[in-house]
Amino acid sequence: MTRRLLPALALAALLPFSLRPAAEEPAFAWQDDLEAARARAKSEGRPLLIVFR
C-alpha cells in the first residue's frame, strides 16, 4: 500500500508549486529519468526534486 500511496502523496505535495513562477518550481523527476531532469534543472536554474520509491 505504501508503495502505491507515497508517490501520489509526493505529487499532491507538488501541486501548490504549479502556481509559482517557473524558475521557483523544483523540476520533478522519478529515479528512472533523473539525469534528463537534472540537465533541465541546470539549464533553467531550478532546484531538482527526485522521488525514489
Partner: peptide, 16 residues
C-alpha cells in the same frame, strides 16, 4: 544520490 536505501520512499531536493 545518497539516501537510506532501505526506505520504500525517499525524496532528494538538490541543485543540478
Amino acid at each position: 544520490y545518497r539516501f537510506d536505501f532501505d526506505l520504500t520512499f525517499s525524496v532528494l531536493l538538490m541543485n543540478a
